[in-house]
Every structure is written in C-alpha cells, then in structure tokens.
C-alpha cells in the first residue's frame, strides 16, 4: 500500500528546500546561522512526528525557538556564575 503521507523527515527536507532561495540570498555568515537553526530543528524530528501537526513548519519553528531558548538559559547561567565569581573575588 505504501505511505499515504510523507514522513516528517521528508517534510523537513521539503521545508528546508523551500527556503533555498532565501538562504542563497543571505550573506555567508547568515547562511551558517540559518543552517544552525535548521540543524536545531532537526534534533526534534521525532517529537515533531509525534505532534502530527497539519502545518509541520510551525513545529519546526518552535523546535528552533526551543533550542535558542536553551542556549539563552545556558548563557544566562554562565553570566550569573561569572558575575557571582566576580563579586566573590
């Protein structure tokens, strides 16, 4: 019978491909940042598959945001630690 819907990985690649022209128009440093965002979203494909969203790009965007927020939290903790060690010293 085969699949009746593309897999989430196929959808992800399709969505990434749809931004190919946008990526091409960016400067190199921005291209790398965009690639990082898609790499971040790729980490959550299993969760995105489970979410079964009719608009998977919404889930991918949230996955990107999730990874960005994790990075913010990590950096915030680092800054607090450095500030703490600065006041202690």
């Amino acid at each position: 019978m085969g699949r009746t819907l593309p897999s989430i990985t196929q959808m992800f690649m399709e969505e990434e491909q749809s931004f190919a022209r946008f990526r091409r128009a960016l400067r190199r440093s921005d291209q790398l940042a965009l690639d990082d965002l898609f790499s971040a979203a790729r980490k959550h494909l299993a969760a995105a598959a489970y979410a079964s969203n009719a608009l998977p790009m919404e889930t991918f965007l949230l996955a990107m945001l999730l990874e960005e927020h994790k990075e913010v939290l990590r950096l915030r903790a680092l800054v607090e630690r450095l500030a703490q060690s600065g006041t202690d010293g």
């Binding site: 009746t4 819907l5 593309p6 959808m11 009719a54 608009l55 790009m57």
Partner: peptide, 24 residues
C-alpha cells in the same frame, strides 16, 4: 493514485484562513 498529500492542502488553507482544522 495515493497522491492526496494533506500538507500542501493545509499550507494553502493557512494562507486563506485561520480555521485550518475546520476546513480540513
């Protein structure tokens, strides 16, 4: 032909309405 892909339909609906699931 096993060719009905709901994702493009949802994408098209999203451009036209906020009530995507109702339309789907």
């Amino acid at each position: 032909g096993n060719c009905f892909n709901a994702y493009p339909v949802a994408r098209h609906l999203r451009r036209r309405t906020a009530a995507v699931h109702a339309a789907l």
